[in-house]
């Protein structure tokens, strides 16, 4: 896979970023913040940081791979072949999921150095990591299809994804927010994935697990259908 060949660009940066988060927010600021939902602050941020890496890894992998294939025109190799659109989509999706999950595992290993990582619900944790990487890989695919220049590949991650991740409860519980902002936060889909992850890791969550999984499943179904229809129509790749 492409991301393994360029591992210094794909695997090392999230490790460094996560180390910095643990050092600054966990070790330096964390003790002054105190416990959150009955856990030390450093333990509280572990699920969010793992999911943050999964989201950005999956998204950027598919967005950049698909756009590169478009830009260098080697997407045409597959377009002229009898490979069905669904297989093309699943191929890119698999690439994104592999990178997302791998980055998630690496970040989790890093977390064990700084925090106490006792996964309460391992199956839920694994499932949410997998489903999150599926949803955001599909998001990256859409971005790659719509992108017309390199800037377009980084606009969504920088101006939409990153704010949503930071406001999705990676570093705080939404219960701390005033009522109005807590309700606004519920419109942020990333809140649900981070909270399922927190439930999986720590056994506590700000929102219901059932509704969170439903949100992820619906998002995955909608995005998959949309990507498939656009790919079938050749959006952004066929004149």
């Amino acid at each position: 896979m492409r991301f393994m060949r360029i591992w210094t660009q794909t695997l090392i940066p999230p490790v460094i970023t996560t180390c910095l988060y643990f050092l600054i927010f966990g070790n330096l600021i964390g003790p002054r913040i105190g416990p959150m939902q009955g856990h030390t602050y450093i333990d509280f941020i572990v699920p969010g940081l793992v999911l943050m890496s999964v989201i950005t890894g999956s998204y950027t992998n598919v967005a950049s791979s698909f756009f590169s294939a478009k830009f260098q025109r080697f997407i045409e190799e597959i377009m002229v072949s009898p490979v069905p659109s669904s297989v093309i989509l699943i191929g890119y999706l698999t690439g994104g999921v592999c990178r997302g999950v791998l980055v998630g595992i690496v970040v989790l290993l890093v977390a064990t150095v700084f925090a106490t990582v006792d996964i309460v619900h391992p199956f839920t944790t694994a499932l949410v990591i997998l489903m999150t990487s599926v949803v955001f890989s599909l998001g990256g695919m859409l971005n790659g299809m719509f992108a017309k220049k390199f800037d377009d590949v980084s606009i969504i991650p920088n101006f939409v994804l990153t704010p949503l991740i930071y406001l999705g409860g990676v570093f705080y519980s939404v219960q701390l927010l005033p009522e109005f902002w807590r309700l606004v936060s519920l419109a942020n889909p990333i809140l649900y994935v981070i909270n399922i992850a927190r439930y999986g890791f720590l056994g506590s969550s700000d929102v219901g697990i059932g509704i969170s999984f439903t949100v992820i499943l619906v998002a995955a179904a909608i995005l998959f259908t949309l990507c498939l229809v656009l790919l079938e129509r050749g959006y952004g790749i066929r004149d």
Partner: peptide
């Protein structure tokens, strides 16, 4: 099925 019978050498270089 139609495409499986065609081999295309395009005008522009289009491999990775």
């Amino acid at each position: 099925r139609a495409k499986s019978n065609i081999g295309l050498v395009p005008q522009e270089i289009n491999f990775n």
